[in-house]
Design a binder for these strands. Structure first.
Lengths: 105, 105
DNA sequence: GACGTCTGTAAAGCTATACTTGACAGCCCA
DNA sequence: TGGGCTGTCAAGTATAGCTTTACAGACGTC
């Protein structure tokens, strides 16, 4: 019988995609921020603010990154999604109790 | 040996989450748009514009929906993500060729 | 006929995101 | 001294995500 990991609520926010980009991807490619921005065809400032985790990876940016490092856009969008979801859950924590739960369809 | 589905580029946009909401979820719950909006604690207009596929499901909205119909926020966010990604790929189709591909890390 | 509730739609307004360009200061290296 | 790097700020634009107010048409019921 197969085993399944139980999906528990997380204690901390899932990594921002900027962290992976900054710590793994760019070093692995040996590219400077400026050079990567040029190749991605976005402004240096925009890439910088993603690396600094001050901006999110938009769907368009995910497409660029997916092409750029050959791992597909979905990877980057999923990272960002997990991050955003965590934030949204935090933010709505109290309000959420007021929303009725309906039986799963 | 296991078989794996090959992931081909899609010809059409993946369904907008509004379509599932409008065609499956709300009917299954037997709720009017107004009533659902009240329970979700968002404006009727906002929910309406998602159902009409004129607005996207934001991370916050996904959390509301996840609670509301007990299937988890990730479901709704994934639907929206797939939809957005398709749109972004369309939009960047030509520009994308100018971005160099690096060997997968 | 009048009431209440639903629906679709539009408009104004607010805050925040996703970008751009330009600019400045500081760093390291040749 | 000059080059390209980096971090950061500021201004500007466009769009998203939300709200409230408002109006019109449909439907059911008393």
């Amino acid at each position: 019988m197969a085993e399944y990991a139980v999906r528990r609520p997380l204690k901390r926010a899932p990594s921002h995609p900027g962290a992976i980009l900054r710590e793994d991807t760019l070093p692995a490619l040996g590219l400077s921020v400026s050079e990567a921005a040029r190749q991605l065809r976005v402004s240096r400032q925009m890439l910088h603010s993603i690396l600094a985790e001050r901006s999110a990876v938009s769907p368009e940016m995910a497409v660029r990154l997916g092409r750029f490092c050959g791992n597909g856009a979905a990877f980057w969008l999923r990272l960002q999604g997990a991050h955003d979801l965590w934030g949204a859950e935090e933010k709505l924590r109290t309000e959420l109790e007021k929303i009725p739960e309906h039986p799963a369809a």
